[in-house]
Design a protein around this nucleic acid. Structure first.
Lengths: 253, 253
DNA sequence: GCAATTATTATGTATATACATGATTGCAGG
DNA sequence: CCTGCAATCATGTATATACATAATAATTGC
C-alpha cells in the first residue's frame, strides 16, 4: 500500500445512473458473485478495504453486506471475513395473484358465479381442514371463475365464522370471497399445498371437462393471530394452466 | 406533551430476550401490524417519536422501517409519514429442495437410476425448451428417483453442452445430475412451471402407474449469466405428492 | 511443548450528525 | 380564485465515531 494518492471516487460510477451509492455498491458486488467472478467460497475484501475502494465509509459497505447476507449471497464470519455463499436449496418465489388478475392476463374477460353458499356446523372433515375443534359454525362457498365463457377455476372455500362473523351476512355476488376476506382480515399468514388430481364427476361437470381429467389443485389455509380463518381449494382443469415461480440470486435486492 | 420526565428506556424490554435493540423494535412493530392493532392504512408514529419511545436514535428506527418497507409491511411517504400497507397479492415462498432430501423426509431410503443418457445435436423442441438457437449439442439424461422400492419421481433433463462442456464426461451414477450441476455452476437463476398432466404410456410405465394417472409436473429452467444451462422436467406420479409454499407477513425478516 | 491467557482483527450494533429529497402547507400576488 | 414561490417537515442517504463480540493469532507460564 504505497500509493494513497488518488482514491478514485467513481470506481463504480462507470455504470452510474442516478442510483444511490448503496445501490451501486450492492449491484457491483452482486454482479461479481452472480457472474462467477467471485465463486462460492471466495473471500471478498474486508469492509474497510471495500470502503476505501468505493471511496465511502465502512458503514455504507457494512449495510450492503448485511443486505447481501440476509439475501443469502454471502456468509460472514467475525475475524475471518465475508465469503461468497454456496448456492444451496433455492427458495423460489411463487406469486399467488388474484384469480381475476390471472384471468385478465390471458386477455379474456373475467367473471364468476357463486354456485353454492351454505352455513352450517362444521363437519369432522371440515374441522380437520380448518384446524378447528369443538362445534364451530362455518360458511361454505363454492365459486366458479371463468375466462370468457369457459370455466377457469373452481373455488371451494370454508370460512370460520367464529373468526369472521361478518362473513355470514356478506354478499359475494359482487366481491369474490377471496377478495372480500383479504380486504377485511389484515395481514394473515397462509400455507399453500399444490398437487395433481383427477377430476371427480361433480368437479368435472362444473369445469366442463371429462371426468378423470388431470387437474392442478391449490389448497390454501389462512391464519390470523394464530387462529384459522379460511380454507380454500382451487381446482384448475386440464394441462393448460401452470403456476410460475422464479428465483433470482439478486432477488432480495 | 407535558410530561417529558422519564422516557422509559425499557419500553419493549418486557419481551426482552438478549436480542438486539433493532430486533426488538422490529418485532414489536411487526406484532402490532400483524395482529391488526395497527390496521392497514394506519399511520404509525413518526420516526423521531418512535425513537423517543424506544429510547434510541432515529437511525435505529429508520433502519427498522427500511426493512419493514422492503418486506412490504409498511409504505413510506415523505412528509406524510409511514403507513401500514394493504396486504395485497401474497408471494409465498416455495422451497425447492433436493429430491433426495424430499424422499428422506418420508422415512424411506432414497435411490435413483439413470435410465437414459445420450448426447446429440439439439432438436427443434429441445432448442425451444432450452431457449437455444443454432445447432448446439445437448446432453439428455433421464433419471428415476425412488422412495424405497417405489418410483418417486421421473427426471428428464437437458443440459446445454456449450455452457457446461464438462457435463459430457460426467459420471451421474454416483451424483445425480441436479446435484452435479448445482455444485459446478455458481449462482444461477431459475424459473419453475408447475402443472398437472396425465401420464402417457412411457411415463406411466416408468413410474409404475396406470396410463392417464394425474401427475404433478415441475419444469425447471436454469440460467447463468443470461445463458441457458439446463431444463429439467420432474414428474411426480399420482395424487400423493404435494408441494408446500408458505407465506408469513413477517417472513421477509 | 502445550495449555491458558492475552492481543489482534473484522464483523456487528448503535449513535449523533449532516445534508438531500420530495411532498405538503401556507402565504403572496395577480 | 388560482398560480407560484418559499417554508416546513418527515423520510432518505451517508458519515464519523464508539464500543461490543467472536474468532483467530500470539504470547506467556508452567
Amino acid at each position: 500500500m504505497s500509493d494513497e494518492t488518488t482514491p478514485p471516487p467513481d470506481a463504480v460510477t462507470g455504470t452510474g445512473a442516478d442510483r444511490t451509492l448503496h445501490q451501486r455498491i450492492l449491484s457491483d458486488i452482486e454482479t461479481r458473485i452472480v457472474s462467477g467472478e467471485w465463486p462460492p467460497g471466495h473471500r471478498l475484501p474486508f469492509e474497510v478495504d471495500l470502503a476505501r475502494r468505493y471511496g465511502c465509509a465502512r458503514m455504507t459497505v457494512n449495510k450492503v453486506m448485511t443486505q447481501l447476507a440476509k439475501a443469502g449471497l454471502v456468509e460472514r464470519r467475525r475475524k475471518s471475513g465475508t465469503f461468497v455463499a454456496q448456492p444451496r436449496a433455492q427458495a423460489a418465489i411463487l406469486e399467488i395473484h388474484d384469480i381475476s388478475r390471472e384471468v385478465e392476463q390471458t386477455g379474456l374477460p373475467y367473471s364468476y358465479t357463486i354456485v353454492a353458499h351454505a352455513q352450517h356446523r362444521a363437519t369432522a372433515a371440515e374441522r380437520a381442514r380448518l384446524d378447528l375443534d369443538g362445534s364451530a359454525r362455518v360458511l361454505a362457498v363454492t365459486a366458479l371463475h371463468r375466462a370468457g365463457p369457459a370455466p377457469f377455476c373452481l373455488e371451494e372455500r370454508l370460512i370460520n365464522l367464529s373468526a369472521v362473523p361478518e362473513a355470514a351476512d356478506a354478499d359475494f355476488s359482487a366481491t369474490a370471497p377471496g377478495r372480500w376476506l383479504v380486504e377485511r382480515v389484515p395481514w394473515s399468514a397462509a400455507e399453500h399445498r399444490i398437487h395433481a388430481a383427477s377430476a371427480d364427476a361433480s368437479t368435472a361437470a362444473r369445469l366442463a371437462v371429462q371426468p378423470g381429467t388431470a387437474c392442478l389443485v391449490v389448497e390454501r389455509r389462512t391464519w390470523h393471530n394464530g387462529g384459522p380463518i379460511t380454507h380454500a381449494t382451487f381446482t384448475y382443469p386440464g394441462e393448460r394452466h401452470s403456476l410460475v415461480a422464479s428465483f433470482t440470486p439478486a432477488g432480495g435486492g
